[in-house]
Design a protein around this nucleic acid. Structure first.
Length: 885
RNA sequence: GCGGCUAUAGCUCAGAGGGAGAGCACCACCUUGACACGGUGGGGGUCAUAGGUUCAAUUCCUAUUAGCCGCACCA
């Protein structure tokens, strides 16, 4: 169904339109880059959503902003490329498939075995993997599906290995035995930024550790008594006089009676707790460092599953939580618990499952960050990377300056397996781009590949170039579209993703992967709460699209965004967006109904443009300028507001109403001009709006006579200086003020709009007479006046309501209907308002500093206003005294 | 502890060194030949507080208060 066929429908129905239009665009290849090799390239890569995920409002916002940008650039003559794709999302996807298998078959991944399990994840990916891309299509995203990528595609996997091997060979990837963040529930290592620190109340337990020689005791303070089985020392500050004599002595651990030394280390804070600290190198990162300095043993009493092991003796097998209370009980019974103090401290939680993270000593792979961060920072300093809004530069720089080595190994099965092999015979480690079957050192066949996979973000860090066929430097896409032009994403993944793309891009391509980073905020719920599955306060974008259409969702999201700030989702904002779209639809219906199918626009030059025509064309030009400017600065909200105001206020509320006189009048030439102006303004407006609400604008475009093949590949309008007309603007302002003034009188004095009135416009001068004469038909119609007199000077009609406007006093004589008291009251209100204005400006002009120092134009403007207000005030006062007689 | 953001109408939020804005909500009126998902008119704000810069501050600067966020530390 086209617009013409459901011409009669007064309500736009997106469901009948959106899918059909999207299919047409896609089939005709409009989304494909490279159709115009002569045009300059503009490229962005889509932040890849989780392959088995569901679109949420954050994706919807992110996609909307990118699509607005890419459509804007395409209309502006760029060869626009938007690379879509999905991420394998290691932990998330694996967990999801594990859960599904557990629920349906009651089996764990270990029951299936690695190979079979990974196969099942691939099955899952193939089955559900396009759900997210269907949703991206439903949003209207005009990305180049012929270049769609997945982080585990062959090419991207090759890029991952290339990067891993090169970094390893440069010494920037290493394997280390260190304390990492371990999630016992996910059973994998996490990077520092995958840990969320939360402030919680905990307890500081003061525990007696007796000296072995019986000469006394020390009291240590700890929040984690369950780790005491792995204590290897007690540390005090070397300058702490309370303990000087104890340094070097041995203490006996309660519960196990193992002996450990008292050592001195200035890491200890004399002020905190008892000033006496137990050292557990395998279960605390700081203790680990103390342990290294003092060459202490690294005992582990908690295993990967979060349970205590044999070191804990009778407590073996308990979970961390169980062990804590059991140990505390035991200490209390044994009299070793001195006291328990309530404290507030921050505790790391797994950002994925919220389990308390365990500092865990293990062998992991790390990326050495220093050499990677430095060039990235230097590039930012040279201005090669701009952030919108700018304030994120500081956050970004601060993070990179303080970044620690990145733990990249994950104890998962789903992901890029680490390309490292261990030889069982010679014990050597080999890293290789290709799978090894033989040890390069001793030629043994007894090789085992490392069991771990890489952090998901390791592969997404390569996204801007791996999607463009890197490491093949000769690849046409890499050559033409890299570096990409801009990156748009939420500020919440600045460190996870943006920073890592930046240093990987620099290292492997020598360039910033993009020159502009546009960061937007989060979409929160109506109460300002973060949306989350657990809170159940999420809104499904597909539900919004079903009910209101993708255009409404897009327009709502894009309109209520301001750079870098969060926004709230509310259904009434969606309704507002829907109403706006409906307004555009109906304005278009109006234009359509008033154009013949073979409509040909007139040439503007030499045509008799009416003041209203000139005014709307001027406003159009201004709007084109404003929208262009805002979009060039990625200010999506401001651009949308400029269009909204122009479309609704200027075009619909005023110009369309004005045009009716010409359209329904009997002057054929005037009618043709009005038709041309309507067509011109509407087609330009559709182009401006298209990036925001692509479906409805395309649908209207297809229905309008004298339009091209498709709006999506049209040319962005240019502000036309020849159509700028300040005189028309100021004249129309008078006309509209006059009309509003009369409407106001009608409303206040309760003269129904349907009742014609006679009007007398008493002008200040012949110039104003001429002006009001030139628009008398508009005034007569919109004030519903059947008897309109326009003259200079003359006496005021005796009984009339009065409105003072610039250049004239408008009288509406309605003898018998006018309540003199009501009219006086209205005039007095107006008088006091004008007095206020006059006083304010008088004060300003009386200020010598203002007159001397303010720009001339500002002073002149104030004088003009003063004059205008004074004239109006006099007229109002005159009228008051008339009525009082 | 360091850094950032926010504070404007009942609600949600724009805004700019020189006359306080929008949407929603509210009140009154309107079946006007695009649209009631509409039209017309209207009410409503000491622009968080205190200083400072300036001829001029709601806007810039400083401090304070409140709320939020990030980073670091935490025995």
């Amino acid at each position: 169904m086209t617009a013409r066929e459901h011409e009669l429908s007064t309500v736009y129905d997106p469901r009948a339109v959106e899918q059909r239009i999207y299919e047409t665009w896609e089939q005709r290849g409009y989304f494909r880059a490279g159709r115009h090799p002569e045009r300059p390239p503009f490229s962005i890569v889509m932040p890849p959503p989780n392959v088995t995920g569901v679109l949420h409002l954050g994706h919807a916002l992110d996609n909307t902003l990118q699509d607005i940008t890419i459509r804007y650039k395409r209309l502006n003559g760029f060869d626009a490329l938007w690379v879509p794709g999905t991420d394998h999302a290691g932990i998330a996807t694996q967990a999801r498939v594990e859960r599904s298998i557990q629920e349906s078959e009651g089996k764990s991944r270990h029951d299936l075995g690695r190979e079979a399990f990974v196969e099942r994840v691939w099955d899952w990916k193939h089955q559900y993997g396009d759900a997210i891309t269907r949703q991206i299509r439903a949003l209207g995203s005009s990305c180049d599906w012929s270049r769609e990528r997945f982080t585990m595609d062959e090419g991207l996997s090759a890029a991952v290995r290339e990067v891993f091997v090169r970094l390893y060979e440069k010494g920037l990837i290493y394997r280390g035995h260190r304390i990492i963040n371990w999630c016992p529930r996910c059973a994998t290592a996490l990077s520092d930024i995958e840990v969320e620190h939360k402030e919680q109340t905990g307890h500081l337990y003061h525990i007696r550790y007796p000296l072995s020689d019986g000469s006394g005791e020390v009291i240590i303070a700890t929040t984690r008594p369950e780790t005491m089985f792995a204590d290897v020392a007690v540390a005090v500050h070397p300058d702490d006089e309370r303990y000087t004599q104890m340094i070097g002595k041995m203490v006996r651990l309660p519960l196990t009676n193992r002996e450990i030394p008292v050592i001195a280390d200035d890491y200890v804070d004399i002020e905190y707790g008892t000033g006496c600290l137990k050292i557990t190198p395998a279960h605390d990162p700081n203790d680990f460092e103390v342990g290294e300095r003092h060459h202490l043993e690294q005992l582990q009493c908690i295993d990967a599953d979060g349970r205590l092991n044999v070191l804990a003796g009778e407590f073996q097998g308990l979970t961390r939580e169980q062990a804590r209370s059991a140990v505390v009980d035991a200490l209390e019974q044994g009299g070793q618990l001195v006291r328990t103090e309530e404290i507030s401290h921050s505790v790391g939680h797994c950002s994925r499952c919220d389990t308390v993270v365990e500092p865990f000593l293990s062998d992991q792979w790390f990326v050495r960050m220093e050499d990677l961060a430095r060039p990235a920072l230097a590039g930012v300093e040279r201005g090669e990377l701009q952030f919108v809004p700018q304030r994120f530069t500081k956050v970004f720089v601060h993070w990179l300056e303080n970044v620690r080595d990145w733990c990249i190994s994950r104890q998962l099965w789903w992901g890029h397996r680490i390309p490292a092999w261990y030889c069982d015979d010679c014990g050597e480690l080999s890293v290789s781009k290709t799978d090894l079957t033989e040890c390069p050192h001793c030629h043994s066949k007894q090789l085992r590949q490392d069991e771990d996979v890489l952090d998901t973000w390791f592969s997404s860090a390569l996204w801007p170039f791996s999607t463009l066929d890197w490491p093949n430097l000769e690849a046409p896409d890499f050559q033409r579209y890299y570096p990409t032009s801009a990156l748009m994403t939420g500020y919440d993944i600045l460190f996870f993703w943006v920073a890592r793309m930046v240093f990987m891009g620099r290292e492997f391509t020598g360039k910033m992967p993009f020159s502009t980073v546009v960061l937007h905020g989060l979409v929160r719920d109506a109460q300002g709460q973060k949306m989350s599955k657990s809170k159940g306060n999420g809104v499904d974008p597909m539900e919004v699209i079903d009910q209101y259409g993708a255009d409404a969702l897009r327009f709502m999201l894009a309109t209520s965004t301001s750079p870098g700030n969060d926004q709230r989702f509310t259904w009434d904002k969606i309704e507002g967006a829907r109403n706006f779209i409906n307004k555009i639809w109906n304005a278009s219906r109006f234009v359509l109904m008033n154009l013949d199918a073979d409509f040909e626009p007139l040439d503007f030059t030499g045509r008799q443009l009416d003041v209203a025509d000139r005014w709307i064309l001027h406003r159009l030009s201004e709007t084109v300028d404003a929208v262009t400017h805002h979009l060039d600065h990625y200010d999506f909200g401001e651009a949308a507001r400029a269009m909204y105001d122009f479309a609704w206020d200027d075009f619909c509320d005023w110009y369309i109403e004005f045009s009716k006189l010409a359209l329904y009048g009997d002057d054929g030439a005037r009618k043709a001009v009005a038709q041309t102006v309507l067509h011109r303004v509407l087609t330009s407006l559709l182009k401006l709006l298209h990036p925001y609400i692509p479906f409805v604008t395309e649908e209207i475009w297809q229905a309008l006579p004298n339009t091209s093949e498709a709006l999506i590949i049209e040319v962005w309008p240019k502000a036309d200086d020849a159509l700028c007309d300040d005189q028309a603007v100021s004249q129309m302002r008078l006309v509209m003020d006059a009309i509003r003034a009369v409407r106001n009188v009608r409303a206040e004095l309760q003269v129904p709009p349907s009742k014609p009135v006679s009007m007398y416009i008493r002008c200040e001068s012949a110039d104003y007479v001429q002006l009001f004469e030139s628009v008398r038909h508009y005034i007569a119609r919109f004030c519903n006046s059947d008897d309109l007199t326009i003259a200079a000077g003359g006496d005021a009609p005796e009984k009339s309501a009065t409105q003072v406007v610039t250049g004239a006093v408008i009288h509406i004589p309605q003898a018998g209907l006018i309540d003199v008291e009501a009219e006086l009251a209205r005039l007095r209100r107006e008088e006091s308002r004008l007095v206020g204005e006059v006083e304010r400006i008088e004060k300003k002009l009386a200020n010598a500093g203002f007159v001397a120092k303010a720009p001339e134009a500002v002073v002149a403007k104030e004088r003009e206003k003063m004059e205008d207000y004074q004239v109006k005030l006099r007229a109002v006062q005159e009228r008051i005294s008339d009525l009082q007689q």
